[in-house]
């Protein structure tokens, strides 16, 4: 609400109640949404988030069942527990949505993201970048005399950590896929 510059405890500039009673209890949840792979379905999901004011921290989508024409959307979102519940209910009522799973709430899950890092440099910095990449188990997928492209798969936190280390060593660009996630166990 701070974005709207509204004093705490005041609703005098809005047509509606603006104070979120659970404003301090923001949680991050990873949702897996199985949808019909048809045109417009991604727009429908994204439109739901923007239209109702929900956050998207990360979003990935790809077809996972070619014969069944099903795609899996993995979305990382933030909100208070009632907002998260509402997001799930709103997703679930979309006609092309088959299943909604809250991987954060339903038990342990595996979350992975793939990232590519372009790091340019010479001398010590270059050697240090390569050494750190080995520690992080990042692969070199492109190399010139002045640059590397590293490929790394890991949790978003690991990718953030590697990016922080690469920044002083000549990090030029990052490309990230966003999170893909599955529940652990059968």
């Amino acid at each position: 609400m701070s974005a709207l510059n509204i004093k705490k405890g005041s609703s005098s500039h809005s047509a509606y109640e603006l104070r979120d009673p659970n404003g301090d209890l923001i949680e991050s949840h990873t949702l897996a949404v199985v949808v019909d792979n048809e045109s417009g379905v991604l727009a429908r999901v994204i439109g739901l988030f923007s239209g109702r004011g929900y956050n998207i921290d990360s979003l990935t989508v790809a077809e996972v069942d070619h014969e069944g024409h099903l795609s899996r959307i993995t979305v990382v979102t933030r909100g208070t527990p009632p907002v998260i519940a509402q997001i799930k209910a709103q997703l679930d009522r979309l006609v092309p949505v088959h299943e909604v799973h809250d991987l954060t709430a339903e038990g342990p899950s595996v979350q992975r993201e793939l990232a590519l890092f372009k790091v340019a440099g010479r001398g010590e910095a270059r050697i240090e970048a390569l050494r750190l990449a080995e520690i992080f188990r990042a692969n070199v997928v492109d190399s010139t005399l002045e640059s590397f492209v590293f490929e790394m798969t890991g949790t978003p936190e690991k990718i953030d950590a590697f990016a922080d280390l690469m920044r002083p060593l000549g990090l030029r660009e990052i490309a990230r896929t966003g999170v893909a996630a599955l529940a652990r166990g059968a």
């Binding site: 009632p82 519940a85 509402q86 209910a89 709103q90 679930d92 009522r93």
Partner: peptide, 11 residues
């Protein structure tokens, strides 16, 4: 009939 109506505004 709409699950999203429940607890949307009033708990």
């Amino acid at each position: 009939i709409d699950p999203s109506s429940i607890n949307k505004v009033v708990r």
